[in-house]
Design a protein around this nucleic acid. Structure first.
Lengths: 155, 155
DNA sequence: CTAAGTGCAAAGTATTTGCTTAGGA
DNA sequence: TCCTAAGCAAATACTTTGCACTTAG
């Protein structure tokens, strides 16, 4: 499902549920579906404001929470203070986070496919979701780091 | 390493670093090492207060953060609002969380052993930690749930 | 027309910090 | 005695909420 399709799909789902389409809400949807980054509420707000300067942060939170309840957005808690939102893959999937530049990748790991199922059988739990995040330093930041440490300041 | 050993070890490590042993700090250490539960700061505080009623929550946070810097405690962020602390296994390990009764298990999963290494090779990251948490319903809560839904209230 | 949505500001929560006093070594 | 640690309260940061006004349908 590509960007415009997903955008239209979400509008459809919201209308089905009797929700109104306001310019602010459309803008939030556009930004969420038009990005595979993992944006914070603040970042979404900053972008919405470019088009609709009067939009409040509270409205962004309200829309995002609505989509979350509908299962069309997932909320990601990383080490940092603020949550991030993902509308491109609204289901459990692994992340690879650079703790230096904050870049977030979605790595492909086939070996985790059956992990939930395995846990469910082994412990008798009914698994509804999971979280698999790796923290480290990306190649670019590793390069930067070794550069600055190999050329120490004279004073 | 069992409870009393770990307790003594932590005291040793703190003294090495020139830290003082106060009754409050001893109490926090005792509780952390004497429990494999994943306690919140509030829960630790509640237990400390039983022995030393004048202890403040800030002091608990300060001690826990000190141990965190020393790598002797890890901080766990689950969906809920407050963090939990684990001094028994101060390294990345998987969790199995019941979203109904909040029970937290540490499941054994051999298949994840080499996952960090695998990711590191595949993406060129230097991995320093990870997080693997499964969310679901424990057997007990599943039983409770099916009982209450199969015997619905008459009104 | 009318109920859902918006904006604003205030409230709420978890954690940290500044400062003064207490007490361990 | 000296300096770290404790206690308290205020500060901080993210998110939610209450309410009056606006507006989509």
């Amino acid at each position: 499902l590509d960007q415009p399709e997903r955008f239209d799909m979400l509008i459809g789902r919201l209308k089905e549920r009797g929700h109104r389409m306001t310019p602010q809400r459309m803008a939030v949807l556009k930004i969420l579906t038009g990005s595979t980054e993992h944006l914070t509420a603040e970042q979404i707000h900053k972008r919405v404001v470019k088009k609709f300067p009067m939009t409040s942060l509270a409205t962004v939170y309200k829309t995002v929470n609505l989509l979350k309840e509908m299962g069309e957005v997932i909320e990601l808690h990383f080490g940092s203070d603020s949550n991030r939102y993902d509308a491109a893959k609204p289901y459990s999937h692994p992340h690879l986070i650079c703790t230096s530049c904050q870049e977030i990748l979605d790595p492909d790991i086939e070996s985790i496919r059956d992990l939930p199922q395995q846990i469910a059988e082994q412990y008798g739990y009914k698994i509804v979701g999971h979280r698999l995040d790796f923290f480290g330093t990306c190649p670019a930041c590793q390069a930067k780091e070794s550069r600055s440490s190999s050329v120490p300041n004279i004073r």
